[in-house]
Design a protein around this nucleic acid. Sequence first.
DNA 1: TGCCGTTATTGAATTGGTGTCAATAGACTG
DNA 2: CAGTCTATTGACACCAATTCAATAACGGCA
Lengths: 198, 198
Amino acid sequence: MTATTRVRLSPEERRSQLLDLGVRLLATRSLDELSIDVLAEEAGISRGLLYHYFGNKHAFHEAVVRRAADDLIAQTAPPAQGEPLERLLTSVTAYVDYVVTNYEGYLSLVKGAAGGNDTLREIYDEARSALTDRVFREDAQGTIITDTPTARLVVRGWAAMTEELVITWRADPSGVSREELLEIIAASLPALVGVIPG
Amino acid sequence: MTATTRVRLSPEERRSQLLDLGVRLLATRSLDELSIDVLAEEAGISRGLLYHYFGNKHAFHEAVVRRAADDLIAQTAPPAQGEPLERLLTSVTAYVDYVVTNYEGYLSLVKGAAGGNDTLREIYDEARSALTDRVFREDAQGTIITDTPTARLVVRGWAAMTEELVITWRADPSGVSREELLEIIAASLPALVGVIPG
DNA sequence: TGCCGTTATTGAATTGGTGTCAATAGACTG
DNA sequence: CAGTCTATTGACACCAATTCAATAACGGCA
């Protein structure tokens, strides 16, 4: 068919192109439907080239997930200035909007990472931390929360809850406004922290 | 090797044997590592027989997940009697203990279902509902919570948080006792409900 | 402008697991 | 104890993952 002459790119360009395409395709299919065949076809290259760059399918999937996670992290960076609670709200808002906009792709990312191997889960965990730890890293005064094992556990739980809320809401927003959702998420953290025994 | 003569069982027996084995093997490997080859080998039957009973791998996986979910539901059934809050605590306790005991298998179930197709996710959702809806189904008076779209959303978020808490805690319980964990989970629901706007 | 070397890229062959199906052989029945 | 039903098998077709020796763009140099 497309008997075009082969195009030769620099390794960085090619690698980047393939990763971008991989992330983009996650909006249409799940991670494990993202086969070497499909990717090569869409990219207009041979399957062999993918192996040249990524070694095997798992490694390719890892690289794609990492790229997607980096996108997320970059777009939800909390502001450098402001009150802890205010920064929290800003960051959460960015997260909600990101998920709303990139819904299908985000779903593939989450499901793929959760169902995948340990490496995938680690990458995903890092992205989650970006949403939580960063906001409190500079909250050394403990305005919101003091750093204990229990507090860490609760914050982690809060992050899981937040993800579930946003995904569920985005799938069916009926009856709940974006502002209500944001309010619930932001107010939840102090409420949960208040529940810590001791 | 095992050149045993073939054994002929009734369809119900065989089916049940294969599902039990499938659930048991989830403690050792993930859902998609549970290949037809592995199962047939472990069961001492031919691959063809698995296809005879389940049609294809997906259907087999669904059946295994459903069986595992049924186990969970059965073992976390809330008591018929008692105050709503008390019943909640009992049910949550059963859930925590179930996860602690069947950790590896539960992980495979959760990851497999989350990463899988819609059918798998539905089965998994039902199991989650067993932990939440059942407790409140008879709470028609609204002692704990009134039934609104927002409340449903929050309860769903609470369930996701609970799962994350238990799994994370079980992986590394240092610094947090089982009783503290239970207290956090049980107290979280009223705390979260209190955060609902309006 | 045209040759040359480097290396990005290909495609054919191999491997491994999924799914199909006609043939085989337990167990029950008369 | 032969006959029937059907649980069970094993060989084969198929598709996706993976390997690797051969190929051909592109930049540099004459």
